[in-house]
């Protein structure tokens, strides 16, 4: 199935060059892939994986390993950030 991984702020360094100007990385993954699987597969540092959203909905740390992605899901991840 097709999903999109979005990485922002300092996590942008983990994107391939062609995705750096959009922060969007479309990819094919196997059915049943979870949020935690994608984080592990791309070796995202755990200390930088802070704000995790699927289609804009917050996924708490305890649910990430078990949260399955479905077709066309957008997984967006930020390190600890704030503003205002």
């Amino acid at each position: 199935m097709r999903v999109t991984l979005k990485l922002y702020a300092s996590l942008s360094d983990h994107l391939p060059d062609e995705a750096k100007r959009t922060n969007e990385w479309p990819m094919e993954v196997a059915d049943g892939t979870t949020v935690g699987d994608l984080i592990d597969r791309h070796q995202l540092p755990k200390r930088l994986v802070h704000l995790v959203l699927v289609n804009g909905h917050y996924i708490p740390p305890a649910s990430r390993d078990a949260h399955p992605l479905v077709e066309n899901d957008v997984l967006a991840i930020w390190p600890p950030v704030a503003g205002g």
Partner: peptide
């Protein structure tokens, strides 16, 4: 986070 990206880092967060 704030020194590197400033408050503007929220732009994509709030949009998402």
């Amino acid at each position: 986070g704030l020194p590197t990206y400033g408050t503007q880092v929220l732009m994509n967060v709030i949009n998402e």
